[in-house]
């Protein structure tokens, strides 16, 4: 199993507007890139042709908030701009 298989079980009503954005300029100086390890939905992908090596997709976000803590709130990082998905949009859990 990979996390991608388990993400198949999750539903979203995807918004047209991204609730989280990444300023790739900040990724250039980020050496350890914790986003690649810590996001539980693998929204961050390492792609060499991207600025700073990070490709970000908000669509599969499970709205845990980890990237706000490990990136947005870190004064040495700060590539992530974080907000909650707008009302009625985003992840929809059945079980909780």
């Amino acid at each position: 199993m990979s996390v991608q298989d388990d993400l198949e079980t999750v539903n979203w009503d995807v918004s047209e507007d991204a609730h989280i954005t990444v300023d790739n300029e900040q990724c250039v100086t980020c050496e350890d890139k914790p986003c690649l390890h810590l996001c539980p939905a693998e929204c961050f992908d390492y792609q060499e042709d991207q600025e700073g090596g990070i490709y970000f997709a908000y669509e599969p976000c499970v709205e845990c908030g980890a990237c706000m803590v490990f990136c947005a709130n870190d004064p040495d990082k700060g590539a992530v701009s974080w907000s909650k998905a707008e009302g009625g949009k985003g992840v929809e859990f059945d079980f909780g």
Binding site: M1, T9, P40, A41, V62, C64, A66, F93, D94, F95
Partner: peptide, 9 residues
């Protein structure tokens, strides 16, 4: 089967 996957802080 896995019915749901979740993440939370």
């Amino acid at each position: 089967a896995v019915e749901e996957y979740q993440g939370i802080l």
